[in-house]
Structure formats: C-alpha cells, structure tokens
Amino acid sequence: YQDQEQRILKFLEELGEGKATTAHDLSGKLGTPKKEINRVLYSLAKKGKLQKEAGTPPLWKIAVS
C-alpha cells in the first residue's frame, strides 16, 4: 500500500508542477485497478499530499505546501 502511494506520488511529480491527472489515467499507466488507485488517492489527499480538483472525473495533483 505504501508502495502504491510512492508510485502515484512519483508519477504525479514527474508530470510536473500544477499538472493534474485522473484515476483512470493513473490506473492505465501504473497497471493497477482504478478502485485501488482511488483508495490511495483519497488517502493521500487526507494526508495533505494531494489536491483533488472538483469535476467529473476529479483531477488529482500534488498539493503545494
């Protein structure tokens, strides 16, 4: 689980600052079920590491501290 968090954070960091992506996109790029990706995304957002942008589907990006 920790491993997934690292992979997602790394992927988003590599996208570049301010760039956002969807759970669907992450799921495809990382070869992980979207349900699992979503769980990790919401967990990271709760920890303040990610920012969720409203929309359908929601967009995710690295939180700027």
Score class of each variant (00 low, 15 high):
residue 22 T to G: 02
residue 34 K to F: 09
residue 16 G to N: 03
residue 1 Y to A: 06
residue 17 E to S: 11
residue 24 H to Y: 08
residue 30 L to S: 04
residue 28 G to I: 14
residue 55 G to D: 04
residue 12 L to H: 00
residue 34 K to H: 15
residue 44 L to F: 01
residue 23 A to S: 08
residue 12 L to A: 02
residue 53 E to A: 03
residue 60 W to I: 01
residue 25 D to Y: 15
residue 55 G to K: 05
residue 4 Q to A: 05
residue 58 P to Y: 03
residue 26 L to F: 01
residue 45 A to M: 15
residue 28 G to H: 15
residue 54 A to F: 08
residue 35 K to G: 12
residue 28 G to W: 12
residue 55 G to S: 09
residue 31 G to Q: 14
residue 64 V to H: 04
residue 26 L to T: 01
residue 48 G to W: 01
residue 47 K to H: 07
residue 6 Q to A: 13
residue 43 S to K: 14
residue 20 A to G: 15
residue 16 G to L: 02
residue 13 E to H: 08
residue 57 P to V: 05
residue 29 K to L: 10
residue 40 V to R: 11
residue 34 K to I: 12
residue 55 G to M: 03
residue 48 G to A: 03
residue 56 T to A: 12
residue 6 Q to I: 12
residue 7 R to A: 10
residue 12 L to D: 00
residue 8 I to V: 12
residue 35 K to H: 12
residue 18 G to Y: 05
residue 40 V to Y: 14
residue 49 K to M: 15
residue 46 K to H: 08
residue 34 K to Q: 10
residue 29 K to H: 10
residue 16 G to I: 01
residue 51 Q to G: 03
residue 12 L to V: 10
residue 11 F to I: 13
residue 4 Q to G: 05
residue 27 S to F: 02
residue 7 R to W: 03
residue 19 K to D: 08
residue 43 S to M: 13
residue 26 L to S: 00
residue 60 W to C: 01
residue 16 G to P: 15
residue 18 G to P: 05
residue 39 R to T: 11
residue 9 L to T: 03
residue 19 K to V: 15
residue 12 L to R: 00
residue 26 L to I: 12
residue 1 Y to F: 15
residue 14 E to S: 12
residue 60 W to E: 02
residue 2 Q to S: 11
residue 31 G to E: 15
residue 49 K to A: 13
residue 56 T to H: 15
residue 13 E to I: 07
residue 61 K to E: 02
residue 31 G to N: 13
residue 61 K to S: 13
residue 27 S to K: 04
residue 6 Q to V: 10
residue 41 L to C: 04
residue 10 K to P: 01
residue 24 H to R: 11
residue 41 L to G: 01
residue 39 R to V: 07
residue 25 D to K: 11
residue 11 F to R: 06
residue 38 N to E: 11
residue 44 L to N: 01
residue 18 G to L: 05
residue 49 K to Y: 09
residue 23 A to L: 05
residue 10 K to C: 08
residue 30 L to E: 01
residue 35 K to W: 07
residue 11 F to M: 13
residue 36 E to P: 03
residue 8 I to T: 04
residue 23 A to W: 02
residue 43 S to N: 15
residue 43 S to W: 07
residue 17 E to N: 08
residue 36 E to N: 07
residue 50 L to I: 14
residue 39 R to I: 06
residue 17 E to L: 05
residue 61 K to A: 05
residue 12 L to I: 14
residue 62 I to W: 03
residue 45 A to H: 08
residue 45 A to Y: 14
residue 35 K to R: 14
residue 60 W to S: 02
residue 47 K to R: 14
